[in-house]
Structure formats: structure tokens, C-alpha cells
Amino acid sequence: MNYTLYIGNKNYSTWSMRPWVVMRYFDIPFNEKLVKFDSFNDDSLFKKTMFSVSKYGTVPILIDEDLVISDSLAICEYLAEKHHDLALWPADPKKRAIARSLVAKMHSGFQAIRTYLPMNIEAEFPQIGQIILRDHLEVKKEIMFLDDLLSSLLTSKKIKL
């Protein structure tokens, strides 16, 4: 296997980082192609580069020989199928269903968090965070829900999703 993973900025792109982290964590060898975000206009270098790789024109993209896979979740599912020995998903069907439910929620949910608290690994803005939590109750609710959900998975055998 000779994987090539096209990603965007590691500081801002959660979508790019998801398969990158999985591949690094599980020691799946890959060639990394970092495509800098200059603009998302169709004539930008980013879009031209990505359209030359995929019809989607987005990151992440995983190339496995002649196969082009787009979307972080689809990439991770593909890697799980190709690398059964690495246990990217739990072996137990119930635990795997719970894990997939969590991943799906993280993949498509938490719209308020995505809107008001975008990823920026390098920055610290505690005052801005306090203002966002004060002024946007939906963000606080999503954080509380996520905290409760993850805490319950760590402390309970009965899981309700």
C-alpha cells in the first residue's frame, strides 16, 4: 500500500486532521501532501491543485493507487477495512455501533461549536471564549452535552445515545 493523503492547514482544518491523526496514531505509512489554503475560489491555487486530484476540490483526499477517497469519515472507514489488524473500530458489535454513533455525531453535529468555536490549535482566546459562552447559549448546551456524553461513556456500562 502506498497511500497519499492530501490535507489542508493543520492548525485550522479539523477535516484534514482526522485521517492524518488516525494514520499517525496507528502507524499507517503515507505520503503527506499539504495544500495551503490561499482561497476557496475556483481559480485559487488550492482549488486548482485539489481539482487536479479529485472532482470534489476539497481536502482531505486519500489516494490508494487508482482509488480516490474524499471525506474524513469515508477515509477512516476505508482504512479500518484495509487494516483489520489495527482495530480502528472496536471488535464488539455493540461497542462498534456506539463508536460509530459518536463519530457520526462529531462528523456532522455540533453546529454551534463549529460556528462560534472554529479550530485554531495555536491560539488562546479565553476572554473571547467566555463571551461566546455568555452570548450563545447553544454553544454552552452543546459543550455540556458533549461533556456529559463522553463522561458517561467513561463511567458507565449502560450507554444511551
Rank of each mutant, 00 (worst) to 15 (best):
K36D: 13
I69D: 10
E142L: 14
I61C: 11
K157R: 11
K36W: 04
D85I: 08
F37E: 09
E32I: 11
D85Y: 07
D27Y: 00
P19T: 00
L161M: 12
D42L: 14
N9W: 01
L137K: 09
F30Y: 11
N41H: 13
Y12S: 09
S13A: 06
D148Q: 11
L5I: 09
K82H: 06
S54C: 12
T58A: 02
S156A: 08
M144H: 05
H83M: 07
D38F: 14
R134Y: 07
L161C: 08
A80N: 15
A112H: 06
I113Q: 12
A97G: 06
I121L: 15
G109V: 12
V22D: 11
L153G: 03
I113D: 05
L149T: 13
S108W: 02
Y25S: 14
I75W: 07
N9S: 15
S101V: 01
W89R: 01
Y6M: 10
N41S: 13
L117N: 01
E65G: 07
K33Y: 01
I75V: 03
M144S: 15
N11C: 06
W89Y: 14
D66Q: 06
T115C: 08
S16N: 04
F30T: 03
K140C: 10
W20D: 13
R100T: 06
R96H: 10
R134T: 04
D43V: 05
Y6Q: 07
I7F: 03
L150F: 13
M17S: 02
D135P: 12
S151Y: 09
Q127M: 10
W89D: 13
S54E: 04
E138T: 05
L5Y: 09
S152C: 07
L137E: 10
T58D: 08
L133H: 00
Y3D: 12
M144T: 02
K141A: 11
E81G: 03
G8K: 03
S108A: 11
L102D: 02
L161K: 00
D85L: 10
M17R: 08
M50P: 08
K95M: 10
I143P: 10
A74R: 01
G57N: 00
S101T: 11
L146C: 10
Q111G: 15
L5S: 09
G129M: 12
Y116Q: 02
S70V: 13
M144K: 04
E142Y: 00
W15D: 05
D64W: 03
D27V: 03
N9C: 14
S52Y: 02
Y116E: 05
A91F: 04
E65M: 11
D92F: 02
S70L: 03
A123F: 01
L45M: 08
C76L: 10
K140Y: 01
T155H: 09
N31E: 15
L62H: 02
V103Y: 01
R24D: 12
G57Q: 01
M106A: 15
D42E: 15
S156V: 09
L117W: 06
R96N: 14
L133W: 00
I159D: 02
K48W: 08
M23G: 08
S44W: 05
K140E: 05
L45R: 00
